[in-house]
Amino acid sequence: MFPQVRLRRLRRRKIIPLLEETRISNHDLIAPLFFDEGAEEAVPIQAMPGQFRWPVRKAGDVVTRLYNAGIRAVLLFGIPKEKDAEGSGAFASDGVVQQVTREMKSICPDMVIITDLCACEYTDHGHCGVIGESCDGPCLLNDPSLEMMQRIAVSQAEAGADIVAPSCMLDGMVSSIREALDDYGHQDVLIMSYSSKFASSLYGPFREAAGSGYSFGDRTGYQAPVPNRREAYRESELDAAEGADILMVKPAGWFGDIITDIKQLGLPVAAYQVSGEYSMIRAAAQNGWLDEKRVVIESLISLKRAGADLIITYFAEEVCRWIHEQ
């Protein structure tokens, strides 16, 4: 009465690689990068060991190194020298992201340049658009902020961005950005929407990296509540209907159910493994509590298994090296 069906036969060491259902490729990975307009040299990000704020003058060196490592897409964040209430540095033709985009495109035209489209790094109040008064006090005004996003999108497209990635979670942001891009002749520029972006506790290290902390309130008014699965799906469903080319779930690791849900909409799905996820893994590895390589690969495979087509991760360059070594 011994078993005839033995799944352990499939788990012989040399058989396992032949039958892997989910694999990570360098083409799955997007490397997020921070560029600081006021920096002269690379500035280590204390809350994200191994990550840096790069000076604009290093854009060519950074993109060349990443391309040679196997990375084929980067996501750019900018830290301006000065901030103001209007976030004018976000849409300036010589803004930090616009400078870096032009330099990268001239040095490495085959790299896909994705630009984070938001204002929180550029406003002196740290919120993602125009602030006004409501019955509850100061708040982000949706429609005036859409006009700002249109200006930023056109400026980034004119600098050479292949994909703009609005992260502000404004109502109607995809349709308004699409209209502006089309009106200015940028029909070929894709929109990768932060369509299901949660008001997560995992963004803390990013705020140090991008200098995007807020001076009052928080962002719960325009980011999805963590407990709300149906609401997150509806956000992505609306962005898909408005013409988004790629949808995104952010954060990634604790939201695999959302990735699986959004996949049903039929568009490519990106998962953003955010700064807090990166820093937890790195800190545990540095303390000798985890095998970093194995944990990172396992975390990315779980996102692919959930349905992600693209993964934005601060481990991208290292993962490409591991893939090559394997």
Rank of each mutant, 00 (worst) to 15 (best):
A47P: 00
G50S: 11
G50R: 08
Q51E: 14
R53H: 09
R53F: 09
R53D: 11
W54H: 15
W54S: 08
P55S: 09
P55V: 13
V56L: 09
V56Q: 09
R57V: 14
K58W: 15
A59T: 10
G60E: 15
V62E: 08
V62I: 15
V63F: 01
A69T: 15
I71A: 04
R72L: 01
V74G: 04
F77R: 09
I79Y: 09
K81N: 10
K81C: 13
K83I: 08
D84R: 01
A85I: 12
A85M: 11
S88Q: 04
S88V: 07
F91H: 14
G95M: 07
V97D: 00
Q98D: 04
T101W: 02
R102N: 01
E103G: 04
K105Y: 10
I107E: 11
C108M: 13
D110S: 14
D110Q: 14
V112W: 01
V112S: 10
I113W: 03
I113E: 08
I114G: 07
D116I: 02
D116N: 13
L117R: 09
A119C: 14
C120L: 06
E121K: 07
Y122N: 07
T123F: 06
T123N: 03
D124T: 13
G126V: 02
H127K: 00
H127Y: 02
H127P: 02
C128E: 10
V130C: 02
V130M: 06
I131C: 01
E133G: 04
S134I: 01
D136H: 01
G137I: 02
P138M: 04
C139W: 01
L140F: 04
L141R: 07
L141H: 02
L141T: 04
D143H: 12
D143W: 03
P144D: 00
S145R: 02
L146M: 08
M149G: 08
Q150W: 07
R151E: 11
A153Y: 01
Q156S: 14
A159T: 08
A165K: 07
